[in-house]
Simulated assay, not measured.
Amino acid sequence: MQDHIVVLTGAGISAESGLSTFRDNGGLWEEHSIYDVATPEAFARNPELVLRFYNERRRQLQSAQPNRAHRLLAELESRYRVSVITQNVDDLHERGGSSQVIHLHGELTKARSTRHCDLVYDIGYRDIELGETCDRGAQLRPHIVWFGEEVPMLDKAAEVVRTADHLLIVGTSLQVYPAAGLVYEVDLSVPITVIDPGEPASVSRARVIRKGACEGVAEWLQSL
């Protein structure tokens, strides 16, 4: 049976494709406070601003390309069983070739109903308009897990982590919960590697490669 490699990715891997992250900009995301564009209260207060913000992010994503780290992780599937659990809302893992991706914080290329959370639509890179509704007549919103909302894929992600033979953490500071808690779901016998150029939160027994995602993943593969 193939070893199961579970990869937990964060904003750092997407940053190397040119997508900005709010944690690198003093709590601002493209000059917007997260509290103005990434909370349910923000959407209730100013839905037009929130929709415009995510429409812009979607257009930015369309022009971005998967980088070497995305492609190297996808290529692992030829030799291993690979599951990617990402905190990112972009589709770069899928476009890079990964077939098993869990999005903890939602997906930018989807929209969902504001009243019926089971109604989710693939919209690609097009805009969501104010007044655009789901099949039951409720306004559509980005399919994003905003601050203060539950993370519906967390339990599934925890189940996947528990089956890991290797845990690779790429481009995340491990400071955003509940996603950061997934590292504690792995069996004590499982090797953990953290790839991040900064100072990620301490993970006992983890090997740390303080490099960017592309360079770090390539180095890790040489030792696999």
Rank of each mutant, 00 (worst) to 15 (best):
D36L: 05
V37N: 03
V37S: 06
A38K: 04
T39N: 05
T39M: 05
T39R: 07
P40D: 07
P40R: 08
P40N: 03
P40T: 06
E41S: 02
E41P: 01
E41G: 00
A42E: 00
A42I: 05
F43I: 00
F43L: 00
F43G: 01
A44K: 15
A44Y: 08
R45G: 03
N46K: 10
N46T: 04
N46G: 06
L49W: 06
L49A: 14
L49P: 04
V50I: 05
V50E: 00
L51P: 10
L51N: 09
L51E: 04
R52P: 11
R52Y: 10
F53V: 14
Y54D: 05
N55F: 09
N55H: 02
E56C: 01
E56H: 13
E56A: 11
E56Y: 10
R57D: 02
R58S: 01
R58A: 08
R58I: 04
R59I: 00
Q60N: 12
Q60H: 08
Q60T: 06
L61V: 00
Q62P: 00
Q62R: 04
Q62Y: 02
Q62G: 00
S63L: 15
S63G: 01
S63V: 14
A64V: 03
A64R: 07
A64L: 05
P66R: 09
P66H: 09
P66F: 08
P66S: 03
N67A: 04
N67M: 01
N67Y: 06
N67R: 03
N67G: 02
R68N: 05
R68S: 02
A69V: 04
A69H: 04
A69M: 05
A69Q: 06
A69D: 10
A69P: 08
A69W: 08
H70Y: 09
H70A: 00
R71S: 07
R71M: 14
R71K: 15
L72H: 10
L73Q: 06
A74F: 12
A74M: 10
E75V: 15
E75I: 15
L76M: 15
L76C: 06
E77A: 11
S78C: 09
R79H: 15
R79F: 14
Y80E: 11
Y80S: 07
Y80F: 15
R81N: 06
R81L: 10
V82W: 13
V82N: 09
V82I: 06
V82L: 08
S83L: 01
S83R: 06
I85G: 03
I85M: 11
T86Y: 08
T86K: 04
T86H: 03
Q87D: 12
Q87S: 14
Q87M: 10
N88P: 13
N88C: 09
N88T: 11
V89D: 07
V89L: 10
V89F: 08
V89G: 11
V89A: 12
D90N: 09
D90A: 12
D91R: 01
D91Y: 01
L92F: 08
L92N: 03
H93R: 07
E94Y: 10
